[in-house]
Design a protein around this nucleic acid. Structure first.
Length: 415
DNA sequence: CGTCCACAGGAATGACGGGCGG
DNA sequence: CCGCCCGTCATTCCTGTGGACG
């Protein structure tokens, strides 16, 4: 392979190599395909459940469970799209609103989304939540519609904000004279029920639909379904698709991940100027996807989290195999001093460590060391080179990775 | 078998910036 | 422009706790 010299070459090469992809868009995970293989059962179930609204009677509330990439969102959107079309055809007064609770983030924004779907104008912010809710109810009553509310990733909202919104929504029908609402909750977390008020739970779980993870063969079907549209004829090896499916199935049957792998593998092949996507491209893609994910998270970390990460990194330089909260806090304070930041409280740092653990940058485990107290054992969850690189890219913190804290010797000495 | 370490992690509270209605 | 509300991040204070040591 010859090295490319000018940008023009890059562009020309790209233009002459369009034969890998036919339609890349199809591999994006917000794309809703015409066919959803292996989800007939769930689609029929949901379809049957919402069907009564076409005759003007309200339908049950429903709860949909399943891990990420099991087709919950796609299947639900698919059914509701069809439902809307059918309703239009029949002139049935049906409204549908899809809200992703995690993206919306707060009760306020969820509600304002619902209002928007009704055509009720609300300001982006500034109103009390109760006020927005009243306007929502008012709009609903005025339009005399049956309104189906889909709350995707609802577990994220409940965990962060509690279940008040959900409680109010399940009760909204009691105060409406003309409109009716039905709620479809979608959750990634199977244990999520425990967070709910029993009253909300019973009202919401009138119907439950579970989306099992896909196995490798099912994933292959899904990939082929899309690949036929996304890739040019013969640009994709069977074995590459099989490998994508196998890798994703090994994780937890995540179709989204499988599609990502396939897309990135295709892009890699295209960049190489190859004519077909091979297993090798998929393997590269796997590394690439993971690497990109971590780098992305690292870059967007708040500065204090970065310093905490650096503290763990520095402690890792000693022969100690893990660090504990107290030692990390000591070094953290010193690093803050060094770079002119005012250190946060130990409580907060403890919280930051837990957050870093959640996103996988650290491994933290609560242990008891008997009379030597209860603490967290902490290790880096990613390659050390990644941490070094992050700091090299940051003007303010660049020196920290090379810095040798005063208390380091003391710490490594005592254990 | 009780003690007591070194924190974990919940709750209440506060500071601050942003955005709106009036 | 004021007053109000929101959401975020942080602090302070607090109670809880597994298990090695004496």
């Amino acid at each position: 392979m010859s090295k490319l010299n000018t940008l023009d070459d890059v562009f020309n090469r790209f233009l002459s190599n369009t034969h890998i992809f036919a339609d890349r868009e199809v591999l994006r995970h917000d794309y809703i395909p015409e066919k959803l293989p292996h989800r007939d059962e769930q689609i029929h179930c949901l379809g049957g459940m919402v069907a009564p609204v076409l005759r003007g009677s309200p339908c049950s509330n429903a709860f949909i469970y399943g891990k990420t990439g099991t087709g919950k969102t796609a299947a639900t959107k698919y059914v509701l799209n069809r439902l809307s079309l059918k309703a239009q055809e029949l002139g049935a007064p049906v409204g549908v609103c899809y809200v992703n609770c995690r993206l919306a983030g707060t009760e306020y924004r969820v509600l304002s989304n619902l209002c928007y779907a009704l055509g009720v104008k609300v300001p982006f912010t500034g109103l009390a939540v109760g006020e927005v809710f009243d306007r929502f109810k008012e709009g609903l009553d005025l339009q005399r519609k049956i309104f189906i509310v889909v709350l995707d990733e609802i577990d994220a909202l409940i965990k962060a904000r509690g279940d008040t919104l959900l409680y109010e929504l399940t009760r909204v029908n009691e105060t409406l004279r003309h409109g009716r609402t039905s709620i479809v909750g979608i959750s990634n977390d199977l244990r999520f029920k425990e967070f709910l008020d029993p009253r909300v739970l019973s009202s919401l779980s009138e119907e439950e639909i579970v989306f099992r993870p896909y196995n490798a063969t099912e994933l292959q079907d899904i990939l082929w379904e899309r690949a036929q549209i996304a890739f040019s004829e013969g640009a994709l090896l069977d074995s590459a698709v099989a490998l994508c499916a196998a890798l994703a199935a090994a994780e937890h049957g995540d179709a989204r991940r499988a599609l990502d792998l396939l897309r990135v593998a295709g892009e890699l092949a295209e960049r190489e100027g190859a004519a077909v996507v091979t297993e090798d491209n998929v393997r590269q893609a796997e590394k690439r996807v993971e690497h990109d994910r971590i780098v992305e998270v690292l870059e967007n970390l708040p500065v204090h989290s970065k310093v905490v990460l650096c503290s763990v990194y520095l402690l890792g330089k000693t022969k100690v195999s893990y660090s504990i909260t107290g030692d990390i806090y000591g070094i953290y304070c010193e690093l803050c001093d060094q770079s002119g930041l005012s250190p946060l409280s130990q409580r907060r740092v403890s919280g930051l460590i837990s957050e870093l653990d959640m996103v996988g940058l650290l491994n933290a485990r609560v242990v008891s060391m008997g009379r030597y107290g209860r603490t967290k054992k902490i290790r880096l969850g990613i390659g050390r080179s990644l941490v070094r690189k992050m700091f090299a890219d940051n003007d303010r913190l660049r020196d920290l990775v090379g810095y040798v804290p005063n208390c380091l010797a003391e710490v490594s000495g005592k254990s």
